[in-house]
């Protein structure tokens, strides 16, 4: 998992991209959570979680992502998911994750 600055969002927003691994479970999820917390502490206002390599998100992954969304929201930041596969989009919709975070380039 890597994170890097990116030029997404509004001009004033400080955006960072976090890349998730192929399977978002406890181990990889906690790594993302730690990374996101650090970025938020550094003043990041837009967190892009890139799920292009992620095939499966399990319940632990969902819980961790909801935690990231909650922490970001409390810090006045927002979370955007990018490159999300169809199955994960369906899962996020079903569980209400997409009510609290946007999905970039979502198919209509």
């Amino acid at each position: 998992m890597n994170s890097e600055g990116a030029s997404l969002g509004t001009a004033s927003a400080k955006t960072a991209v976090v890349y998730a691994d192929d399977y978002l479970n406890k181990l990889t999820g906690e790594k993302i959570e730690r990374e996101c917390k650090l970025l938020l502490e550094e003043g990041c206002t837009e967190l892009v979680v890139d799920l292009s390599r992620t095939e499966i998100v399990n319940s632990i992954g969902v819980s961790i992502l909801l935690g990231v969304i909650d922490t970001a929201s409390n810090a006045g930041a927002r979370v955007i998911f990018s490159e999300v596969n169809e199955t994960t989009v369906e899962l996020f919709d079903m569980l209400g994750v997409t009510r609290h975070a946007d999905i970039l380039d979502r198919a209509a």
Binding site: K26, N58, S59, I60, G61, V62, S63, I64, L66, D70, M94, L95, G96, V97
Partner: peptide, 15 residues
């Protein structure tokens, strides 16, 4: 800790 993740993540509970 894992159990809490599983219960929150399975039903999409925020906290």
């Amino acid at each position: 800790r894992t159990s809490l993740h599983l219960i929150l993540g399975s039903l999409g509970i925020m906290r």
